[in-house]
Every structure is written in structure tokens, then in C-alpha cells.
């Protein structure tokens, strides 16, 4: 019995976790195992946890505007640890104009304000199936 395992994390100092919690719950309701690591995670903590938990995906939530700094740091650490097969997506207060940069850094998708959990779940399932 394989399960999709996802780490949901809030990097940096942002404390607004409504979205992260709603997404975590939706993913659980879609049959996934969600490791929720809470607030104030450093990129190092996120990557280390992702490796130990052998997750398929990492979901990063940031509403403080620090995403251009924090998200690529997670990607780079994953690469350093030979764990670049873990796919990273993000959400929060992220202007569309920042999305190309984030995708170039290696983020697979940004789920901006107004995205439904249904869309997020489908995206993850599809990506997971493609990888298997």
C-alpha cells in the first residue's frame, strides 16, 4: 500500500497558517500522509525533515513576502543533499510576476490566492502518477 507523503512547512517567520492547515487537511482527506511541521522552519530543518520522512513532495507556505529568498534555498539544499527528486510547490501571498523566477529556481507550481484545494490535490496526484 503506497501513500503519497507530503511535508507542509512554513519557512521563515510568517505566522499565518490558516492556508497551510486547510491544505494539509484537504490532502489528508484525499488519502495522503501529511507531515505538518508548523511555524518558523529554516530551510535546513525543512529539507532534513523531508529526507527523513522520505516525502514525495514539499509544500511551502509564505505570506510574508520572503518567498523569493526562502523557496530557492529549500530547492538548493535538496540538490546538495541529492534529494532533488522531491518536488516542491508553494503558496501564499506571491505575486504572479515572481512565479517565473520561482519556477526557474525549481519550484514546480505556485498555488496563489483563490486556488481551490481540489486543484492542488489533482496536481499532486497527477505529478505523482507521472513519476511512478
Amino acid at each position: 500500500m503506497e501513500k503519497i507523503r507530503i511535508l507542509i512547512a512554513k519557512p521563515g517567520l510568517d505566522g499565518h497558517d490558516r492556508g497551510a492547515k486547510v491544505v494539509a487537511r484537504a490532502l489528508r482527506d484525499a488519502g495522503m500522509e501529511v507531515i505538518y511541521t508548523g511555524l518558523r522552519q529554516t530551510p535546513e530543518q525543512i529539507v532534513e525533515a523531508a529526507i527523513q520522512e522520505d516525502v514525495d513532495f514539499i509544500g511551502l507556505s509564505c505570506l510574508s513576502g520572503a518567498h523569493n529568498n526562502l523557496f530557492p534555498r529549500v530547492i538548493n539544499l535538496l540538490k546538495e543533499q541529492n534529494a532533488a527528486d522531491i518536488k516542491v510547490f508553494g503558496g501564499g501571498v506571491i505575486p504572479q510576476s515572481d512565479i517565473p523566477f520561482l519556477k526557474e529556481s525549481g519550484i514546480v507550481e505556485i498555488f496563489g490566492p483563490g486556488t481551490s484545494t481540489e486543484v492542488t490535490v489533482s496536481f499532486i496526484k497527477q505529478l505523482y502518477d507521472e513519476r511512478s
Binding site: 501513500k3 494539509a24 487537511r25 490532502l27 489528508r28 482527506d29 484525499a30 488519502g31 495522503m32 500522509e33 501529511v34 507531515i35 505538518y36 511541521t37 508548523g38 518558523r40 522552519q41 535546513e44 530543518q45 532534513e48 525533515a49 527523513q52 520522512e53
Partner: peptide, 18 residues
Amino acid sequence: FTGGAILGDRIRMPEHTT
């Protein structure tokens, strides 16, 4: 019902992750 789970106990020991 869904087979999913929220695994949130790690939160309580952040210093041990690294």
C-alpha cells in the same frame, strides 16, 4: 475513511531535526 493522515508530532521537537 480516506486512508490519509496528518502526522504532526514532529512539531514538538524541532531542535532534533537537525
